[in-house]
Amino acid sequence: MSGPKETPQGASRYGMVIDLDRCNGCGACMVACAVENNVAPAPQRANDRNGITLLRVFPMRNGRDYPESRQVFVPMTCQQCDAPPCESVCPQHAVEFDWTTGIVAQIPVRCLGCRYCMVACPYHARAFNWWDPEWPEGMESTLNPDISTRSRGVAEKCNFCHHRRQVARERAAHEGREVREDEYQPACVEACPVGAIVFGDLNDPDSAVAKVYEAPDAFAFLDKLGTKPKIRYRSRQEWVHAMARQGVPEKEVTRG
């Protein structure tokens, strides 16, 4: 292919801000994500480490005893890094940094299933299809036609519900106008009952997300790694910021 991957004029750069002080860990975002993205029900033998969770809410504790004990819930998904460590390691361009949206695209049909990207990702945001996806009888008809299902043996991850953008763009083009911000929102954002997640175009200074992106209490996880994530988190609790800066491993968990 000729021509450089230039970022065109007026390109978008989608980002997200998640308010940890608001999140109550209900998991609605996880459910909405799975339903929206045609994630097959996990087989009986699956566990929390080998199922498909493109978005996962982790509890984060300060490790102190009562009464100093504190906890927040961290919805963790692909951080849509501007310098994605998963992109450069993929041997066959199944991961691509979409220069028109800033989304790190995972293309399942190109994926070999080597899982190098999963090893490279420090956010553990990628999932592998360890099983053949199977839906109970009749449940196929509830699948979302806007996004493909993935076969066994490929990696997948959050694409910021990019298919929703396509639908929104199609409608807008038909009506001869630009996409409105509320037309393209990922399923998790819509599902959050407390409005903890704000999503939008960071290149648009008027977007809701741009207004809180640089807030003083906003931070990114593992920002010293140089991955430049486009998802930021907010919290007014100092210990949350401290934890995010330095990771300390907990106890060992064995499986096998």
């Binding site: 028109t100 695209a105 990019h162």
Partner: peptide, 19 residues
């Protein structure tokens, strides 16, 4: 698809056509 896109000078990211 890609030949025609290229002919029209439109280099598309994967996500433009893949879902």
């Amino acid at each position: 698809c890609s030949d025609c896109h290229e002919k029209h000078g439109r280099r598309s990211p994967c996500l433009e056509c893949h879902k």
